[in-house]
Design a protein around this nucleic acid. Structure first.
Length: 286
DNA sequence: CATATGTCCTGAGAGC
DNA sequence: TGCTCTCAGGACATAT
């Protein structure tokens, strides 16, 4: 489930393709339902052939590959998508192959077990108008004031609001849980009931958790799906404090038992002692 | 307008 | 053992 840290790891991993030229783009034969590819493979291939990769970018959970003619390839891995520079985990889930010339990498692969991911080729203007405008400020760029101003009037629970990409871009289910744990905030708290100190702590926790996860190259969960561009697992799953740890003791207070609840059809994990509805728990205070 | 729900997809794991 | 069922959740479409 690539979220910001996993997508950032992919972007850093493919930095070596900058300067290469795209020789061709192909969709390997696959009897599974194909990923969304826009435009279809023939037009896609025609439009990128011979183009030089100018830079790599990231916006929220999307990988951006900028070409030298103001086009950009926008990759959304969603649940199980991967960007790879080496042989994929399985051949049957290989969705796209980008052959390269003139650089150190022979090819770039898009692999996706469930096929919910999307790959789109857009003109930069089109990207700005259709994709970029729908996204909030990137989670690593946003200021404490910006996030509070954006969400302070919302009646939604803070956990649900953090997943809203139009509010803040890049946070998903796993990191929302870890962020609120670090901030010492109950995930059920309505945004409009949060205090300024709580917003400050949430903002700080966003940076702390995401940057720490990036250092570990993201989280590879039990199903083992997520891999970096060299097909190696991440390491942050060993640092998870609450995510997928229901019924285990809280790693901070050691008295609370991690609870699992469902919010907006998604699992939420938290410590009922460290993440109280109001007030600053002594263990979380500065 | 804000918020809530349904949908897509595959494979793992539970339960019988 | 082998089948069926449920669940995982990203982003968007549709509903309230």
């Amino acid at each position: 489930m690539p979220e910001l840290p996993e997508v950032e790891t992919m972007c850093r991993g493919i930095a070596s393709v900058v300067g290469s030229r795209i020789e061709s783009v192909q969709r390997p034969p696959c009897r599974l339902r194909p990923c969304l590819l826009q435009p279809r493979i023939d037009a896609f291939d025609r439009r990128v052939r011979g183009k030089r990769i100018e830079s790599i970018g990231r916006r929220g959970k999307r990988v951006l590959i900028y070409l030298d003619d103001a086009q950009v390839i926008v990759i959304e891995p969603r649940m199980t998508g991967l960007v790879l520079l080496v042989d994929p985990p399985t051949v049957e889930h290989l969705r796209l192959r980008v052959d390269l010339t003139g650089g150190s990498e022979p090819q770039l692969l898009i692999w996706d077990r469930r096929g919910l991911g999307t790959i789109r080729l857009l003109h930069q203007e089109e990207f700005a108008e259709t994709v970029d405008v729908r996204l909030g400020v990137d989670a690593l760029q946003i200021t404490a004031d910006q996030i509070r101003e954006k969400l302070a009037s919302s009646q939604r629970p803070i956990k649900v609001a953090l997943l809203d990409q139009a509010a803040v871009a890049g946070i998903g289910n796993l990191y929302a849980a870890e962020i609120l744990f670090l901030a010492g905030v109950d995930p059920r708290t309505r945004c409009d009931k949060l205090s300024r100190p709580q917003w400050q702590r949430i903002h700080k926790a966003i940076g702390d958790v995401l940057n720490e996860a990036i250092r570990y190259e993201g989280s590879t969960l039990g199903d083992g799906t997520y891999r970096n561009v060299l097909n190696d697992p991440g390491g942050y799953q060993n640092c998870h404090r609450v995510y997928d740890r229901a019924a285990l003791p809280c790693p901070r207070c050691e008295k609370g038992v991690i609870r699992r609840i469902v919010q907006a059809q998604r699992s939420t994990f938290f410590c009922p002692i460290c993440q109280r509805k109001t007030g600053v728990h002594p263990l979380v205070a500065e």
